[in-house]
C-alpha cells in the first residue's frame, strides 16, 4: 500500500531541520466527494517542500488546508489534524485571521489589489496593526519589496497602480505582500504557471533566497521546477499522498511505480 509507504517515510528520521507543519490522517470532502484520503505529511522548517502530481490529484486542495483557505468554500468538511508548531490549526480556539497572518499564501494567478504598489504591500501590516507610524510602515514596505527582489524596479513609482506592472512583477509583488506580514510559512499555489520563462526564473531564484527565513510549500506542475527549487518533494495521486522524500531521491530513485511513471512522463 502506497499510503503506508508514505507514512513510513514521513516518520523516518530526517537529517535536516525539524517539522514546522504536519498533517495527520487528513481527509477532505467537497460535499460527498472525497478529495483527500488519509494524508500524512510533514513540512520541514526553512525548506522548500514541493507538491507534485497530475491535475486534480488534490495537491492544491491540500495546500489550502494548511492555512484553512478551504474554510471560505461552502460544503467542505475536513477530518484529521493539521499542526503548526505542534498546535492543531483546526482547533476552535485558533483564530483563522491570526493563523493566516502566520501562514502566507501566493496564488496561481498574480492577484494584486487594485491599489497602488505601496498600498498592496502595506495592506497586511495595516490590517494587522503591525506598525505604529508611517516610518515603520515605509520600512516594512521597502524591506518586503527588497526581499521580493522588486524594489529596484518599482521604487520610483510606488504610488502608481499595481495592476500596471507586468505579470512577473505582479507575482513578485504578491510575494512581497505576503512577506510584509512576516509569516513563518509561505504557501505557493503554482506561482509561476501564468508567467513567462524569464519571470519564472526570477521567482524561482526568489524562492531559493526566501528559504533561509521562511518555510515554503509550493505546488507545481513543472517537475523541473520542483527539482530546481525544492529540498523535499511529495507526489500526490488521486487524492492520496503516494510518496514523499528528498527531492533528489524522488527524482532519481522513486520507490513507488506511480511516482516513477509520473516523473518519467508515462502518465499524468
Amino acid at each position: 500500500m502506497a499510503v503506508v509507504t508514505a507514512d513510513a517515510m514521513t516518520n523516518a528520521p530526517h537529517t535536516r531541520g525539524k517539522s514546522k507543519m504536519a498533517a495527520r490522517d487528513l481527509d477532505l470532502f467537497y460535499g460527498d466527494a472525497q478529495a483527500l484520503f488519509n494524508v500524512d505529511l510533514d513540512v520541514m522548517e526553512r525548506e522548500v517542500t514541493a507538491l507534485i502530481g497530475p491535475s486534480g490529484c488534490g495537491k492544491s486542495t491540500f495546500l489550502r488546508c494548511l492555512n484553512r483557505m478551504n474554510d471560505t468554500i461552502d460544503g467542505v468538511t475536513i477530518s484529521g489534524k493539521v499542526t503548526l508548531d505542534d498546535r492543531d490549526i483546526y482547533d476552535k480556539i485558533i483564530d483563522v485571521v491570526q493563523l493566516r497572518a502566520r501562514i502566507g499564501m501566493v496564488f496561481q494567478k498574480p492577484n494584486p489589489f487594485p491599489k497602488s504598489i505601496f498600498d498592496n504591500v502595506a495592506y497586511g501590516p495595516r490590517i494587522h496593526g503591525l506598525v505604529n507610524s508611517r516610518d515603520e510602515l515605509d520600512e516594512i514596505v521597502m524591506t518586503s519589496l527588497e526581499k521580493a527582489g522588486l524594489l529596484k524596479e518599482v521604487k520610483d513609482r510606488l504610488a502608481s497602480p499595481a495592476t500596471g506592472l507586468s505579470g512577473g512583477q505582479q507575482q513578485r509583488l504578491c510575494i512581497a505582500r505576503a512577506v510584509a506580514v512576516s509569516p513563518e510559512v509561505i504557501l505557493m499555489d503554482e506561482p509561476c504557471s501564468a508567467l513567462d520563462p524569464i519571470a519564472t526564473a526570477k521567482v524561482e531564484e526568489l524562492i531559493d533566497e526566501l528559504r533561509s527565513n521562511y518555510t515554503i510549500v509550493i505546488v507545481t506542475h513543472s517537475m523541473q521546477q520542483a527539482a530546481r527549487v525544492s529540498q523535499r518533494t511529495a507526489f500526490f495521486h488521486l487524492g492520496k499522498l503516494v510518496e514523499v522524500g528528498e527531492t533528489d531521491q524522488i527524482f532519481t530513485n522513486p520507490r513507488d511505480e506511480r511516482t516513477k511513471g509520473y516523473i518519467t512522463g508515462r502518465f499524468g
Binding site: G104, Y123, A178
Partner: peptide
Amino acid sequence: VPQSLRDGSYGLGAT
C-alpha cells in the same frame, strides 16, 4: 470582482 482578489485578501489574514 474576481474571486482571486478575495482569496488574496483572506490569504493575508483579512476578515
